[in-house]
Write a protein that binds this DNA or RNA. Structure first.
Lengths: 229, 229
DNA sequence: TCTGTCCGGTGGTCAGACCAATTTGGTGGT
DNA sequence: ACCACCAAATTGGTCTGACCACCGGACAGA
């Protein structure tokens, strides 16, 4: 038994702690908003050093499962999208041909996402989408590229699918594409064409027309695809 | 200058270190296989404590960008899929209705992935797919569920797209689904039906028939979808 | 009741120590 | 000259304790 244990690859302490919290989250024993015991307390409970606890909490943070606030504590945060997006985007960034790959995935995902949004969007979500396009219009009228609204529109569409996995992946892809989108929207006429096709998508979503929404998104992606990809 | 820095929201030290390494990787100054200086050395260079360096390296590890080996050092590892998959899978796991969401994403992604594989698979990749199905047949004949080969087949299909983002996302989704797949394949007749539809997909991929591959994958997903989802 | 201050608790960082694992360099033998 | 072995050096992993900045709650005063 003892010998057998030593032939197994040594597991790092902080990884065990992370797994422990994963189980608690998965079982529902910890949920969004719950506060973890203090680092010092966890170190005592787990009979480990505070350093190991900190390293575990770093992992949970990076996994988008927790947020630490100095002076306040560490909280389960399973609805915090920013860190997950940054993390997912960084994993995509690690490869070559990042833009090409991200764009291709976008082509695969966003048309059916638009279709799902057409089936599932609540009136509030439709209103939100409209609001974003009004912002985009204002930005373009003011001489800006409207890139933030452009990104927000795609994110809101994914949110309207009510599918957590899709939301996360789309957000990561959008994060990766944000830079090239800024350049792309500098081209003459592109902003207005982007906005026009956004509006077409919104009409189809509002009308509850999945096929129309899908086709409108296909068209939109053709309109905005950067040249030379 | 000094005063100005202090009015900016305090940034955590280890995050600055992570960003530094992100830049180095992005610029190509660090690439797969390169060894980082020792933690103690990095602490000295950056004029920070070793704890901060460690927390930064934890982050890089979790981002799938580095691997630490006791006694040897820390190495850039941008081609290490295992940690990225585990990480992505854990972010998906954090939500409710995990299986439902993962399955829905699978429905959106895997048919077009099969189509891309039909366009892009090399002869070696096709042979690999065939090999996996032969393994699956052997496992089923031996009375096992064949779940490992089932998963491997989907992963190999994604790999045949030559799109790094797709590979990562599909691998994460497969990781999440692996548990339910094991149960699903316990149902009578399901293994053979799964294998049969895999073989149909492979034929279409081998024939370079994207539409046929896509339809075969649609059919396959309908065959294997767990009841009650 | 509201506002301001203080204090205790929290996370963030530092420094140093020790242990386990790996690598490197030196020595001896062939 | 080459190889094997061993000890020392180096590395990451964990621990301990200290100090600092921040936050939230409690309490006192207006």
């Amino acid at each position: 038994m003892q010998t057998q244990i030593q032939t197994v690859k040594r597991r790092r302490l902080h990884e065990d702690i992370v797994q422990h919290f994963h189980s608690l989250i998965r079982e529902g024993a910890l949920k969004h908003g719950d506060r973890l015991p203090a680092e010092r307390e966890l170190a005592e409970q787990f009979q480990v050093s505070r350093s190991s606890v900190r390293e575990a909490i770093r992992s949970l943070e990076l996994q988008g499962l927790a947020v630490s606030k100095p002076g306040a504590g560490t909280f389960i945060s399973t609805e915090n999208l920013d860190s997950v997006v940054a993390l997912l985007a960084s994993t995509f960034n690690a490869g070559a041909d990042v833009l090409r790959d991200a764009f291709e995935m976008r082509h695969l995902l966003e048309p059916p996402i638009a279709a799902l949004a057409a089936q599932r969007a609540t009136p509030e979500e439709v209103a939100r989408l409209r609001e974003i396009l009004e912002d985009q219009q204002r930005q373009i009228d003011a001489g800006d590229t409207g890139v933030e609204s452009d990104t927000a529109f795609h994110f809101a569409l994914a949110a309207a699918t009510h599918n957590a996995a899709l939301i996360k992946v789309v957000s990561a892809v959008e994060d990766v594409l944000q830079r090239s989108r800024g350049q792309s929207l500098e081209e003459p006429g592109r902003r207005q064409r982007s906005l026009a096709s956004h509006q077409e998508i919104l009409q189809r979503v509002q009308a509850g027309d999945p096929q129309g929404a899908q086709q409108a998104m296909d068209h939109h992606l053709a309109v905005v695809e950067p040249s030379g990809l």
